[in-house]
């Protein structure tokens, strides 16, 4: 937060002018992992309920089945991963994989490889978690190692899908 202040000051607090530099500042897997651990602490220790802001509705230009499905998926009620509840963790990932399978049924051909990356990543997450009986703490080291291996590919695929959502579907997150 503090490190981004000089960037914003240099752009006279015009976020649109500073957004690329600020995004680059936080575009780091270590930051993502730290953020996830802080969020988990908020939920598990502080009892703070996570809040998901709804995405904007697809605009009139594209109401394809994929756009509609993507919009619906992004607006499903989501209380986040219940880290301390193995049964809840299993249910969370089962639901996520089911949603991705539904999305896969209507995804445009050019996006399939990218959606497959997400599906394979979460499927492997499930395998690792299952080996630890969905205990996030026990699975942590293996999840971290796997995440480090696939993070770049996953982020690239997610970026393509997000760009399609925004530019083609008109979904603004």
């Amino acid at each position: 937060m503090q490190s981004s202040i000089p960037i914003l000051e240099s752009h006279e607090w015009d976020l649109s002018a500073a957004v690329d530099e600020i995004t680059a500042l936080f575009d780091d897997p270590a930051v993502d992992a730290a953020d996830a651990r802080l969020d988990a602490f908020d939920v598990e220790v502080c009892g703070i309920e996570p809040v998901d802001e709804p995405a904007d509705d697809p605009q009139d230009g594209n109401a394809s089945p994929y756009c509609q499905a993507s919009f619906a998926l992004n607006n499903e009620p989501d209380d986040g991963i219940p880290f301390g509840d193995p049964a809840g963790v299993e249910e969370y990932y089962d639901d996520l994989l089911a949603s991705l399978a539904s999305l896969h049924a209507v995804v445009p051909e050019e996006l399939k490889p990218h959606l497959d990356v997400l599906g394979e990543t979460f499927s492997t997450f499930c395998v690792i978690l299952e080996q630890c009986e969905f205990d996030f703490t026990a699975a942590g080291p293996d999840l971290d190692a796997y995440q480090a291996d696939v993070e770049a590919e996953f982020d690239a695929a997610a970026d393509v899908l997000d760009a399609h959502d925004e530019n083609v579907c008109g979904i603004v997150f």
Partner: peptide
């Protein structure tokens, strides 16, 4: 959380 918090 000290190291994680320092990154934010």
């Amino acid at each position: 959380l000290r190291d994680d918090f320092a990154l934010m």
